[in-house]
Write a protein that binds this DNA or RNA. Structure first.
Lengths: 338, 338
DNA sequence: TAACAAGGCGCAACCGTTTGCGGACATCAA
DNA sequence: TTGATGTCCGCAAACGGTTGCGCCTTGTTA
């Protein structure tokens, strides 16, 4: 590979100093239009490509925003990444994406690397490690050093800048929808108290029921563990079973779909089902599934704004911002069976 | 945000020169163990974090490998990224991922940016622009300048280093499987001659049929355009319709799944269907779908090896490497109806 | 014609790190 | 004591850009 052209080469050929070349190429004042054109032409001919490394060192700016995703296999993060990229590109920033693969150690490592690269701000989807005393101590350290970053997801009460999608609200809305269809016995499939997001969805359901003067019957809750499918099967075979089921997410609903069909239960005639996250299959199964979508655009926009704000004023008070989700009603929820 | 600690700060506190600090922290010879320990301790206390930008400039190495993905929303790329990352991390490289979003202009731009950052090598999943004369002229320019990179996917005949998954082979194997079940009339749904990958799958099917002395009846091919679902419906309602269908990919098969059911056709009793790419729903639909998986591990390994080899010897002759895929036989393919 | 202003340009320092070279010092043998 | 040998370490140049400051040139005005 040939050595890349540098600014000195251009300066030599143009009979100027490197200073002039730099000013010419960066559209800074202090160069006649003639010289500027001469230099630009020369740069093109030589196929000059500024060395970002040197540039960043000289400018004391990395033009880098770090994006630490909990698990890139989830498309949500990619979509988010794209939107952020698009928002900060006009400001001259590059977004560097890194993947924690559901592993706190990797998350720490990624943050460390990004700091070594002198990222100017970080957007973090953290792994929740509920088994450790201080699940977010490395985040607290960032905060302590006034390093600008925002956290996505439901970390509350730690005094961090944070943007979160409103799980509770949409779960509540979904349940209200079921109630309006006449359902009174609503079950929750795949409960996992250790998972904050699932927990919030669960809370939302319970909240809506309570508002209608109902209780969420513990017998109608199937936990998310090995063998949950058996749990679901027996639940569906008991008398007085729920007339509507809320699944913890769309993958679970997909897995249950076949099982429900095999039991000879027809959705929504015999049973209504609803779930979260709008995975592509939810609109192609029969029946199509009632589900929810986040507002990714809103999340990205708000998170980016908040980060930029924090980069401006690293001392500002931490903020929490809540982004509403949308309920999509499809075929799988219908009137309660007579 | 506080100014980060630099090597000078440590040197001052340790009463040494920056040279010694550098040597100490990088485990280079020429420092007594005592001084080394003193410096390391100091570095930890000060929370020193080397400035990668300055480091890279001094070392004339970016430690960067660029990964240009055609469309990050496709999980395949992420999986690939992870594997490559894992392979090159031990060598001290960082993989920088960038997303072309199915847009050639963006692909060019991404490559440009990566070159400005002095990436030492590139892995590129290109967008195929079959409308332009030289679909890959920017890649040819890279090659010309002996910039190390490998292309993934089926770009052949341009003299580039290239790793590709064997679509033809697995399509052929899939078809052979159908033939062995007694099928003689095999249809192909979603043909798109402009898409190289689909084309190869189509070719594989045709090849297998020809080897059995059969022809792929053009009337049994449904093109991938607006309204293909209508085409499929009419095909399935004609007498002498195919007894087996090969779908261009798993998303198409998912979309068709419901349509087939609505026509009262039972799979695989009345009709066998098979497709490509092992999307999560293929194993949860009823019936589960016969499909194919790439060997992502193999692809990543081979691509990385090839890239590293090219980085060593930028002048080496370009190579093409073919990676086999695997056929997964599930419920959706069965014996031909009597 | 001299005094002055203003704009174009170059010199050199700087960004934070690495590293070749040579100086200082200790050790050891003659 | 001297010289040879070797080890530890500092000086300063380099990496490829940016930029404050001051010099020079040119044009304007009295």
């Amino acid at each position: 590979m040939k050595k890349p052209v540098k600014i000195d080469d251009i300066a030599a050929l143009a009979n100027t100093s490197t200073a002039t070349v730099s000013r010419a190429l960066n559209n800074k004042p202090g160069v006649t239009e003639a010289t500027r054109q001469r230099i630009i032409k020369l740069a093109q001919e030589l196929n000059y490509r500024p060395n970002r490394i040197a540039q960043n060192l000289a400018l004391q700016k990395s033009h880098l925003i770090g994006f630490v995703a909990a698990d890139l296999l989830n498309v949500v993060y990619i979509d988010f990444f794209r939107r952020v990229q698009k928002l900060v590109e006009p400001l001259g920033y590059q977004v560097l994406i890194s993947d924690s693969e559901q592993d706190v150690a990797k998350e720490r490592h990624n943050i460390e690397v990004l700091r070594q690269h002198r990222a100017e701000g970080l957007i973090i989807f953290p792994i929740h490690d509920w088994h450790s005393e201080t699940p977010v101590d490395h985040l607290m350290e960032l905060r302590l050093r006034k390093f600008p970053f925002v956290v996505l997801g439901s970390i509350k009460g730690y005094g961090l800048d944070c943007v979160t999608s409103d799980e509770i609200g949409v779960a509540r809305e979904m349940t209200a929808h079921l109630l309006s269809l006449g359902h009174r016995r609503v079950g929750f499939i795949g409960h996992d108290p250790e998972n904050r997001c699932v927990n919030e969805r669960f809370e939302g359901v319970r909240l809506a029921l309570r508002e209608a003067g109902l209780d969420l019957d513990p017998a109608h809750v199937v936990a998310h563990r090995e063998g949950w499918q058996e749990g679901l099967r027996t639940l569906l075979q008991t008398a007085g079973r729920p007339t509507a089921l809320v699944f913890m997410n769309d993958v679970l609903a997909l897995m249950a779909h076949r099982l429900i069909g095999d039991l000879g239960i027809e959705v929504p005639r015999d049973l209504s089902i609803a779930t979260f996250d709008n995975g592509i299959w939810t609109q192609h199964l029969r029946p199509t599934l009632t589900t929810t979508v986040e507002n990714p655009q809103g999340i990205a926009r708000v998170a980016t704004d908040l980060l930029l704000e924090r980069m401006e004023t690293p001392d500002g008070a931490p903020q929490t911002r809540l982004i509403p989700q949308q309920l999509i009603i499809r075929e799988s929820t219908g009137p309660v069976p007579q």
